[in-house]
Design a protein around this nucleic acid. Sequence first.
DNA 1: TCCTTATTCTAATAATCGCTAGAATATTGG
DNA 2: CCAATATTCTAGCGATTATTAGAATAAGGA
Lengths: 216, 216
Amino acid sequence: MTDFPEAPIYEHLARLGKVLSAPVRLRLLDLLDQGECTVEELAQRGGLPLKNTSAHLQQLRAAGLVATRREGTRIHYSLRDREVSGFLGRFQEFAEERMSDLRAEIEEHLGRDETVGAVTGPELEELLRGGEVVLVDLRSPEEYEEDHVPGAVSIPSRQLEERLDELPWDMTIVAYCQGPYCVVSPRAVRVLNGTGRQARSLRGGYVHWKRRRDTG
Amino acid sequence: MTDFPEAPIYEHLARLGKVLSAPVRLRLLDLLDQGECTVEELAQRGGLPLKNTSAHLQQLRAAGLVATRREGTRIHYSLRDREVSGFLGRFQEFAEERMSDLRAEIEEHLGRDETVGAVTGPELEELLRGGEVVLVDLRSPEEYEEDHVPGAVSIPSRQLEERLDELPWDMTIVAYCQGPYCVVSPRAVRVLNGTGRQARSLRGGYVHWKRRRDTG
DNA sequence: TCCTTATTCTAATAATCGCTAGAATATTGG
DNA sequence: CCAATATTCTAGCGATTATTAGAATAAGGA
């Protein structure tokens, strides 16, 4: 077997890798990055059985990535601190940079045009400073209420079609959803561009923006 | 099963986690961070069978973490670019920060006094500027020749005892080995302190220092 | 206290991954 | 072209991990 003196240390280190090696756990971490959640909410939004969810959350907790808070009979999970969010962003960025099949999958999933034409964080700042842009938050009113990008107006994605007349023809529209791999904003951008407007998606959605704000 | 629309993306993302979930692969990455290596060298230094080593290297290559270069019948592996080195550092740092059992393991492995008393990168710069320090490279002459911290003198760890008289009594001695989890420099520090000198280890050894130089 | 709800713990099965042996490939030197 | 060396590919076994059902725990309300 492996017999170098540092072996036990790498054994421990690998535990972090193991935790990040299950798709479900990475998904849960991204959900938690959008805000505190109960086990049931996470199970629902992650689309997997409750017991399964709980088991994965235990592993995340054992690795020191998430924290729990009890409120009555419910247990609320959240990322343990901001550095977890920052690390998660770095992890995803790094993976996207060098795994070309991952990039291909993202483009296929979100739509090629909407992916490459997406607005990055610094670009958004620039656009907001110029004032030539309307920023649209497509998430639920509750999510918008809890926190949103300053200057954004709330138009939940389901109401987009019926509230189209609130959106201008002569300014760029930037739309964002939860992110980082959410389809909602690319879809909305397609709709808006279909009406002849100038719309772009915010790369990585709310989560990426928040990571940038909180961890630089 | 898992049935949310972003599932295939997280599936791909998890491949990076999987690659980082085996102790052997993390070890190989750290070895590669010290410089280019052939498969045989890696197998030897990692203390595992050749075929096994090759299999792991394939996985690292599939994930875009390492590059290969053929020279005659040998194949030389190296980290694909500097960002891999930087990410690796971030990964280890993050793991050490929040997994207390990992910290405990490191302290036990390297020695408690030598770990907490270790010199960090910025501290070393400060000490070198002041000129009140002797920096000792404990690695092999070949490794020293290829690259070393500016200002370091080469005293391979095996020669330390017989070359003790080259080291001063009135200055702090900072010693480093390959790192980041190498026992050589903590051991040397114990020997030096045993003679009554003032010695400290460089935290993370050559690898940490190089990561700092190359990726900031 | 007892019942209900939310979650975790325990244990068993199913899927995945690491390891290793044998065959295959690629390059160099004769 | 053949032999030698370095490495990779293929396949099967063994170990680890995910999943999930059932029992257990913990808090809140009747």
